[in-house]
Amino acid sequence: MKQRDFGRTGWRVGEIGFGAWAIGGSWGDVSEDDAVATLHAALDSGVTFLDTADVYGDGRSERLIARVLRERGDAERPLVATKAGRRLQPHAADGYTLENLERFVDRSLSNLEVETLDLVQLHCPPTEVYDRPEVFGAMDRLVEKGKIRFHGVSVERVDEALRAIRQPGVVSVQIIYNLFRQRPADDFFPAARAANTAVIVRVPLASGLLTGRIDRSTQFASDDHRNFNRHGESFDVGETFSGVPFEAALEAVEALRPLVPGNAGGMAAFALRWILMEDAVSVVIPGGRRAEQARGNAAAGDLAALPAETMAAAREIYDRIVAPHVHARW
């Protein structure tokens, strides 16, 4: 797998990582056996960057990663990024204290069975957190204590990403960027390059829509966020189908379908390769619930670069069908 620099950390990571939300929860039932097989398949395929969070399955995702890395023994260890903050009840800016963050970090250290966490990201905190240097100072303190190596943020909106990189200790920003959410390339990526900030791209397949396998008849389980969060009932609606209304998203998928090269192996690989055309991206983290999904995603980096006319056509579809619903909001 091709490697990319991870900002100013000195790390090199495989350009396609693995997002471990689905194996934790909120995507319907995923058995432990399937989750373990999926993680092994990702790592066997060259993935060197795993992304999780302490709230994915109330720690299940972190514990599954620890189990798989234990089973692999002396195999080269991937970098593991986790997140903290969403355990707060209520999830409010005043809860982002050193005491609370250290408690969350200690729990992740236990779940992941390590002495130091590679990367801890504030997990889509309230917007006012980005203007509180004391919060980022608390993360710096956890670095000084040796509990974390680096810290970053996972954001909902471009303006939050721009504010985050002004904090000197922030080495990475995780953001939604895909064929349905193209604004980061316009407004954020140039600033990230200038700051040498790593960019982690999440929701690359728009909750499965950009696999081309979802249609109007697709049914989702009651515990799948694509059922219970379509209108933002539980968390930011932008995390589900990238915030695009379902009917408009399906229209855009059909418009994109003719752009997929015959040798691409499907729309999912095409959508991932489209993201990798952006050199500001350090790693893209598609998820998966089955081993074959992990293997297919990891192979997307082997596709040839997309021609300029394909990139232009994809932008035209975005501008015409998708942007009116999402561009100004996130």
Rank of each mutant, 00 (worst) to 15 (best):
V135F: 04
L88A: 12
H225C: 11
V120Q: 01
H123V: 14
D187T: 15
L64T: 12
Q174N: 13
A66D: 10
S61H: 06
G288S: 07
F180G: 04
A305V: 15
P286L: 00
V47H: 00
A300H: 09
R70C: 10
V284N: 02
P261Y: 01
D159Y: 08
M311A: 08
Q3V: 14
E15D: 10
F180D: 09
R4W: 06
R289L: 08
A305G: 14
E113L: 09
A268H: 07
A312S: 13
E71H: 05
R216H: 11
L109V: 14
V237N: 05
N111Q: 09
F235Q: 03
E239P: 07
L142R: 04
L306A: 07
Y177L: 12
G73C: 06
G287P: 10
E99N: 10
N111P: 12
A198M: 08
P133R: 01
L112Q: 05
H40S: 09
K83H: 08
S110E: 15
L303H: 07
P168V: 10
E113Y: 00
A328L: 11
F6H: 02
R149Q: 13
V143A: 03
A305I: 13
E15S: 12
G10P: 14
D58Q: 12
L50V: 15
D34H: 13
P204L: 00
G262E: 15
S242V: 12
R216G: 11
G212W: 04
P258H: 00
R329P: 11
R70D: 15
T97Q: 06
V203P: 05
D51E: 08
F18N: 00
W274N: 06
R273S: 06
A84I: 15
R149Y: 05
L43D: 04
L210P: 13
P78D: 00
G17N: 06
